[in-house]
Design a protein around this nucleic acid. Structure first.
Lengths: 164, 164
DNA sequence: ACAACCAGTTGCATAACAAGAGCAGTCAAG
DNA sequence: CTTGACTGCTCTTGTTATGCAACTGGTTGT
């Protein structure tokens, strides 16, 4: 991986880290689909990533400190990938992209419903979801809110559309 | 340009449109640097894009309806590129990326100051800036606010840092 | 008339990406 | 204790995208 940075502009630097066609999709799957193992990310990917690309991207995301890795105690060969705080804070970027895509592109209904809700929910909903992610990925306990979490609500909405 | 879409997910679709290393930088330059001609985008690019890549990206951005093209009446060979409404609405995406990059990456001070202000300004400032962009790119008049616009304030802040 | 400027195009080398097979270790069932 | 499925990858072999530099055909200002 050749590492020459083109400029110190924050947008450029961000693009150098996650500006390829796969990194953000992997992060999306970790966030919204709770995929945490290599195989899960590989086979349950909506887009069909190939294994060498996945391995490569996970490696660079690890290097950049956007995801972390730990052994899975239930299976010696399984690793479990988690988002770091940096990774979690990419949520607003994904949410804005989802909102824009939902508005202007040819999005399917099942896959668009989460984008719609997340976009309508705005920064407040994002912050709540990020807190949930901090719990599942970083193990940071949070005070329980009443009612189902953002993740659950998104998932439920998705299921409702699929059911139709 | 092979056109097979991988999935109907809004994030994926957005990445297929602007998920390469250059498209968003071109849009950034049009937004924040007010680069409107081919040569301006080519030679005043912070990162040094090459002409064939620029030509190719502008073509696809035109196809996707993110920028538009018009003749420049002052010069028969000059074309002027403008952002469309779709393009302007990519601002929040860029702003979030800028904010994330500013927070976590090794941003230079001059180039980071705008990201900082824009990030601190939040959605309200973005909306105001988008209105300014609608004026310069779409010719939509808006009622004048008192004081300098967002674009001017960002530019002034940048100049102040450079001057030091 | 001439140099500088304009928006690209073309040819070629290299880097990134992608599909699929393969591999060594692990685990649970029979 | 053997078998078959599963684990996280790596290797091989292409294809596609990117990047550099030179070049084209026209326009404009002096």
């Amino acid at each position: 991986m050749t590492e020459q940075q083109r400029s110190g502009c924050p947008i450029n630097l961000t693009l150098e880290v996650v500006g390829d066609k796969w990194s953000l999709l992997i992060i999306r799957d970790m966030m919204f689909g709770n995929r945490r193992h290599f195989r899960e990310l590989l086979t349950r990917s909506e887009e069909g990533i190939s294994s060498n690309i996945l391995a490569d991207r996970l490696k660079t995301l690890l290097d950049r400190g956007i995801v972390s890795w730990a052994e899975d105690p239930s299976h010696k060969q399984k690793g479990i990938y988690s988002l770091t705080e940096q990774g979690i804070e990419l949520l607003p970027v994904l949410a804005q992209m989802a909102g824009w895509g939902f508005k202007y592109l040819d999005v399917t209904e099942e896959l668009g419903i989460r984008a719609k809700l997340l976009s309508e929910g705005g920064p407040k909903m994002w912050a709540e979801f990020m807190d949930e992610l901090r719990e599942t990925h970083l193990g940071i306990k949070r005070r329980r809110k009443s009612g189902p979490g953002v993740g659950e609500r998104l998932q439920a909405a998705y299921q409702r559309v699929v059911a139709r």
